[in-house]
Computed example of a mutant assay.
Amino acid sequence: MSNISFIRNYAGDALWALMVFLGVGLLFRRWSTRMITLIALLFCVCIEISQLYHAPWIDYLRSTRLGGLVLGFGFLWSDLICYAFGIAAGAVTEFLLLSTSSRSDNPVQAAHP
């Protein structure tokens, strides 16, 4: 499999999940990173599982541009793995940024790493 094919097949799902993680974090700023991660992952899994349901009304929503982007079209196990990687990337980045900023906020700890 070429790199372009890999990116086309999997990167979009990981970026979508990262966007969900960032959206949950922006909406609920006081929540812990762990809680944001859990809620984002739960949301993504629920959306993916909803793709197993095909009633006319939800298929109509999926046929619109926004509905297709949010709800997707068909269930794939690989999407769940991509979601986990995308959300993990956001959680790890947030953890690293928060731990770096907390060290720089404390002058004693910043002077003695």
Rank of each mutant, 00 (worst) to 15 (best):
M1W: 07
N3L: 08
I4S: 12
I4R: 03
I4M: 09
S5H: 01
S5W: 06
F6H: 02
F6N: 02
I7F: 07
I7M: 13
N9V: 11
Y10T: 09
Y10Q: 05
A11G: 14
A11W: 12
W16F: 15
W16V: 04
W16T: 04
W16Q: 06
A17Q: 08
L18Q: 03
L18Y: 14
L18V: 12
M19P: 06
M19Q: 10
M19Y: 07
F21E: 02
F21Y: 11
G23M: 03
G25H: 00
G25N: 05
L27A: 13
F28R: 06
R29I: 02
R29N: 06
W31V: 08
S32T: 15
S32Q: 15
T33M: 00
R34M: 14
M35Y: 15
M35N: 15
M35K: 15
I36R: 10
I36C: 05
L38K: 14
L38F: 15
A40D: 05
L41E: 07
L42N: 06
L42W: 11
F43D: 04
C44I: 06
V45G: 09
C46P: 00
C46L: 13
I47N: 06
E48K: 08
S50C: 03
S50I: 00
S50N: 01
S50A: 07
Y53G: 09
Y53P: 00
H54T: 02
H54A: 03
W57S: 04
I58H: 06
I58C: 03
I58F: 08
I58T: 10
I58Q: 03
I58P: 00
I58G: 03
D59L: 03
Y60H: 01
L61C: 13
L61Y: 05
L61D: 02
R62K: 00
T64M: 06
T64I: 02
T64Y: 03
R65Y: 04
L66A: 12
L66M: 09
G67I: 00
G67L: 06
L69H: 12
L69K: 05
L69A: 13
G72W: 04
G72Y: 08
G72I: 06
F73Y: 11
G74F: 13
F75W: 09
F75K: 10
F75E: 09
F75C: 11
F75S: 14
F75G: 14
L76N: 11
S78R: 08
D79W: 04
L80Q: 04
L80N: 07
L80F: 02
Y83R: 07
Y83A: 11
Y83P: 13
Y83D: 12
A84N: 08
F85N: 10
F85Q: 01
G86M: 07
I87M: 05
I87Q: 05
A89K: 01
A89Q: 10
G90P: 14
A91Y: 08
A91W: 07
A91E: 03
V92W: 01
T93V: 02
E94F: 09
F95L: 13
L97P: 00
L97D: 07
L98C: 15
L98G: 09
L98W: 08
L98V: 13
T100I: 11
T100N: 10
T100Q: 01
T100F: 04
S101I: 04
R103M: 13
N106E: 11
N106F: 10
P107M: 12
V108L: 14
Q109F: 13
A110D: 14
A111W: 08
